[in-house]
Simulated scan of single mutants.
Amino acid sequence: MSKVPTNLKYAASHEWVLDNGDGTVTLGISDHAQELLGDVVFVELPDLGRQISKGEEFSLVESVKAASDIYSPLSGEVIEVNSALTDTPEMVNESPYEGGWIAKIRLSQVAELADLLSAVEYEATVAEDA
């Protein structure tokens, strides 16, 4: 079974969200998502300052098996990207919840956090897909 940290929120499309407690969040893809993708070979990072809307594609992760668009579970402005992924995209596989994060955004709609899944709800969604 994939790791599903309980301190994070999740989107049904397999992105995770860490609420940084200051109006910003950190985004990445779940352990389950990286397992489905296989060995990640490239991560397209969003541009700093980009305004993204909930549900909008903001990144692309390519693996040896496929390329997958990554959708933002929240609306806001990209304030930081994980530039380490440019040289070490495999961090998404090795450490999806720590070193493999993709971007940080400043929320424009804090209320959207309430629409995300808890770890238990996300695990149930993954189990249904299996």
Rank of each mutant, 00 (worst) to 15 (best):
G76P: 03
A84T: 11
L37V: 01
A119D: 08
E123M: 01
R106S: 08
Y122E: 12
G23Q: 09
V110L: 12
L113D: 10
D22E: 08
V61D: 00
K65L: 07
L48Q: 11
L85G: 02
S59F: 03
Q51G: 04
N7G: 00
V78M: 03
L85C: 06
N82Y: 00
A11T: 08
L117W: 05
H14G: 01
N82R: 05
S72I: 09
V41F: 12
E112D: 10
G23P: 04
V120P: 01
D39H: 10
S63G: 15
A111V: 11
D87C: 12
V40I: 15
T125Q: 02
E57D: 05
A114Y: 07
E62V: 02
S2E: 05
W101Q: 05
A66Q: 14
S95F: 05
A124G: 01
A124H: 10
S108E: 11
P73S: 02
G55W: 09
Q34M: 07
S95M: 06
L60S: 12
E94Y: 01
P89L: 14
P89S: 13
I102Y: 05
E90D: 02
E44Q: 11
E112N: 07
V120N: 10
S30R: 08
E35T: 11
E98K: 01
A127K: 15
S75P: 02
V61M: 03
P89K: 11
L48Y: 08
E62W: 07
L18K: 10
A103S: 13
K104W: 06
V64D: 00
Q34N: 02
T125E: 06
R106F: 04
I102N: 11
E77V: 05
S72V: 03
D69H: 12
A84F: 01
E94A: 07
D19N: 10
E62K: 09
E98W: 00
F42Y: 15
E77H: 05
V17C: 05
H14R: 01
S68A: 15
D19I: 00
Q51I: 10
V43G: 04
E62G: 01
G76Q: 04
D22C: 13
